[in-house]
Each structure stands twice: as C-alpha cells, then as structure tokens.
Simulated scan of single mutants.
Amino acid sequence: MSKIKRPSFYIALGLLILFGVIGLLGQYGIGSEQMIANGMDLMMWIGLSLAMAVIMSYAGYVSFGHTVFIGIGSFAAAYIVAIRNYDAIIAAMNELRRQAIEAGLSPSSVSLPTSEVLKLFTVSSLLASVLAVLVAVIVGYAVLRLRGAFFAIATIGLNYVVMYIVLFILKNYIGSIEGQELGNPSMGLTNIDFYWMHYLVFIITVLVAYFVRVSRLGYGLAAIREDEDAAEVIGVDTFKYKVVAFTIAGWLASLWGVAREFRTSFSAQVDFSLLNSVVMLLENAIGGIGSFTGPIIGSFIYYPLKWYTQTIAGVFALVILGILIILVVSFTPRGVVGILRDRFPRLRKYLE
C-alpha cells in the first residue's frame, strides 16, 4: 500500500486541515483570542509529543533530556532576533511608526513586513537545526550505546551539561545570564501571526513523524523497540538507526523552541525544565507507545485536561493531574491506542 494511501496518513492530513481551519477562523476574526492561544499550545504539545515519539514510541528509548533541544531552539531565535538584528528591527519599526503618524494612522498598528519576519524566523530555524543536529549526533554517539534506565539517566545529564554550556556562552560572550539583559524588539506581531509560525512547524513535524513511522527507518526502529538483539541478528544497523532517530527527534523539538521563543518575545529564558520532557513522555504513554496516532491522542487528552484543571483548581492542578496520570498509566499500560485496538479491531489500520 502506498504511504500516501495508508489510513493513518488521512489522520495526519485531517489534523493539518483542522488546525488550518482554526487559523483561518482567527485570521478573519471568527472566534476568540483564547481559541487561537489554545490552538497554538495544542499544536506545540502535539508537535513535541510527535518529536519525542520518534525516539521513544518508535524506538523504545526514553529520553528525559529531550527538553534540551527546545532550549537550543529558544536560544537560536533569541540570538538571531534579540542580538544580531536588534538594532535593525528597532530602526525599521521606528521608521514604520513615523510613516504611520505622517499618514494619520496609529503608530501602534504597524508591524514588521511579513517577508522580514519570515526571514528572521527562517534564519533562526536554520541555526537551531544546525545546533540541534550537532548536539544530537555528538550526544547520540556517546549515550545511545546505553539501554534502558542507563540511557534515561544519561539524558538527564545531557540536559544539565548543555544548559550550563548555553548559560556560559550567554554570560561570557553575549553579556547576559539566562537572557536577563537581552532586548525585546517588538515587531508588532499579533497572536494570529504567531499561530501561523506554529502551524508551519506543525506541518513539518506531522509529516516528518508520519513518514518516519511508515518508512524503512520506522520499521527498523520498531524492530529495535520489540527486541534490539534480535534486530541486530537479522541485519538491522541498530546503532545507526538510533542515532538517526535521536537526531530527527532533536531537530523537530528545536523548531518548536524557535516558534515558542518568537511568541514569548525573545527573553531567551532558555527552558531546560525536565517537566517538558516528562509531559512529552506522558502524552506518548497515555496515547500509546509504538504508533503515530498514539502521541496525537495523548496530547488531545492531556492538554485540555491540564488547561481545565488549572482553570478550576489553580495551584492544585498538578496534584490532580498527577493522580489522574498515575491511574491512567497503571490501568491502561498500552495507552488509549491499545484499548481501541483490542475493542475495535476495525480501527487497527488507523492506529498504526
């Protein structure tokens, strides 16, 4: 069966159409700002969950340090926008405001031209990609010979090593500790502008995650997940496959770091919190390990649950969520996908 004609491809396509429609509604003033904000958040967590899936769900390797790649993307965006191009952006915005005043318009309504914003976003993404790939390859060669708990522990160490390297660079070469002294060059962008940035990264993430899953690489990773020793016996270059998967997963996560940094105004507060990795792991576990659709389903369950519990319970939301997640993982170790496969056999082809 062609990869394009597989049922799971239509799930990927439907997902892209759904968030595209939400963006169009926001573009034409239909719907609320909260809808657009929630749409961005949900896209980000689905995207990060799929990025984690490439190494976790597909290959069976749990990475607690995956948030480091989000931080790399965040740093890259802050460097390009808030350091390299800060003065140019400020000068361009001042000129646009001057022209608006002369034309009798509100200076607060101006924004940097779309072409300039796209250029900054593209350069930031390229830098993030290069840095993420370098880190992933170097670290992958160092830690992917480990398995199980040893690999998971090593990735926690990765998180702190890279975090302190970034902070050292900020302090000694850029003159800022954790981004405290970086400027915030407003470009006059709105939530819908940030939404389309997220959507662009979302398209890349969904398509890459899907095609990895149904490719030869995906089948090799599945063999590694089921029995790595047996996979080696039948000729799978397990180490090479794991490094490639780890690199793809890191690259995708770095793109989300860029998108989030544009939205959070270039503070360069590089977020290396292990909580991000834990959330990505939980979304995969809740949805179901070993599938493309599992991380998507897990994100659709986890994010609304988190949002509503925070709205209702405030600071106690994490306690409630923790209890619910323990119950879900304890009683449904195969995740929602596993339950659906068992109870509705006809759905199995959609849940690959």
Rank of each mutant, 00 (worst) to 15 (best):
M1I: 12
M1E: 13
S2C: 02
S2K: 09
K3R: 09
S8K: 02
I11W: 01
L15N: 04
I17W: 04
G23K: 06
G29D: 08
Q34V: 15
A37P: 01
A37D: 14
M43Y: 06
M43C: 06
I46K: 03
L48D: 02
S49L: 02
L50D: 07
I55H: 00
A59C: 10
V62T: 12
T67A: 15
T67S: 15
V68G: 04
F69D: 11
I70S: 08
G71C: 11
I72P: 05
A76S: 14
A77P: 01
Y79T: 10
N85L: 03
I90R: 14
A92H: 13
L96R: 12
R97M: 13
I101N: 02
I101W: 01
S108H: 02
V110P: 01
E116Q: 12
L118T: 00
T122S: 13
S125E: 05
V130I: 15
V130W: 04
V133T: 15
V135D: 04
I138F: 12
G140R: 10
A142F: 09
R147E: 09
I153N: 02
A154T: 08
I156S: 00
N159G: 02
Y164S: 01
I165A: 13
N172Q: 14
N172L: 13
G175N: 09
G175Q: 11
S176L: 05
G179Q: 05
G179W: 07
G179V: 07
L182P: 00
G188W: 04
W196A: 00
H198P: 00
F202V: 13
I204T: 14
A209K: 10
Y210N: 14
R216P: 00
L217D: 03
G218W: 06
Y219S: 02
Y219C: 00
Y219Q: 12
G220V: 05
A222Y: 01
D227K: 11
D227V: 04
D227M: 03
V233D: 05
F239I: 08
F246H: 07
T247W: 04
I248E: 06
A253Q: 04
L255V: 07
W256Y: 14
A259V: 10
V270T: 15
L275K: 08
L282F: 14
E283C: 13
N284D: 12
N284K: 03
G287S: 03
G287K: 04
I289R: 13
I289V: 15
T293K: 03
P295L: 12
I297M: 14
I297D: 06
F300L: 15
Y302K: 09
Y303M: 15
W307N: 11
Y308V: 15
Y308K: 13
T311E: 10
I312M: 12
G314V: 08
V319M: 13
V319C: 07
I326D: 00
L327W: 01
V329S: 05
S330Q: 11
T332H: 07
T332W: 06
P333G: 06
V337H: 07
L340A: 14
L340K: 07
D342H: 13
D342G: 09
L347P: 01
R348F: 00
K349D: 14
L351Q: 02
L351E: 01
E352A: 02
